[in-house]
Amino acid sequence: MGVARMYNPYFRGKQFELITIRETAGLMAGAGFVPIIEPVKEALKGLERTLQTICDAGGRAIVVVNPYHGDHQEDGVGITKVLQADYIGNDAISAGILLRSNTTLAQAIAACEAHKDHNPTFVHAGFTSQKALAEYLGEDLPASQHVFIEEHANTLYRKHFDGSTRVLIRDGFKRLKNAEYAKTPVEEFSELHLTYSSDLNMAGFGDFLVVGDSYSESGGPAYAVAIHLTFIDPDKDDVMYIYHFVSTSNDTPTDPAGKFAQALKKLIDKLNTGNSKLLETDAIKEFRDLHAKGHFPGLGHVKKLAMKHHIETLAGYLG
Rank of each mutant, 00 (worst) to 15 (best):
M1A: 12
V3A: 10
A4C: 08
R5E: 08
M6S: 11
N8D: 06
F11K: 04
G13V: 09
K14T: 01
R22F: 02
R22N: 00
T24G: 00
G26N: 01
L27H: 01
M28W: 07
T50L: 05
A57I: 14
A57G: 09
V64W: 13
V64C: 15
V65E: 10
V65L: 14
N66I: 04
H72N: 08
Q73E: 14
Q73V: 07
E74I: 11
G76T: 02
V77Q: 13
I79V: 13
V82T: 13
D86I: 09
I88S: 01
S94Q: 10
S101A: 14
T103W: 12
A111G: 14
E113Y: 13
A114Y: 04
D117N: 14
A125S: 12
G126H: 07
T128Q: 15
K131I: 02
A132R: 08
A132E: 15
L133T: 00
L133Q: 05
E135F: 06
Y136N: 06
L141G: 07
P142C: 12
F148Y: 11
E151Q: 09
A153Q: 03
N154G: 15
L156N: 14
Y157L: 14
Y157I: 12
D162S: 15
I169Y: 05
L176Q: 08
A182G: 03
A182Q: 04
V186D: 11
S190C: 08
N201V: 12
N201C: 14
G204H: 05
F205A: 11
L209R: 10
S214I: 15
S214E: 15
S216L: 11
E217H: 11
A222N: 03
A224F: 05
L229Y: 02
D233W: 00
D233N: 07
Y241T: 10
Y241G: 00
S249T: 10
S249A: 09
S249P: 01
D255H: 04
A261E: 08
L267Q: 00
L271K: 00
N272Q: 11
L278T: 06
D289V: 02
A292D: 10
K293M: 07
F296E: 02
L299F: 09
G300D: 01
G300E: 01
G300N: 08
L305Q: 00
L305K: 02
K308W: 03
K308P: 03
E312G: 05
L314S: 06
L314T: 09
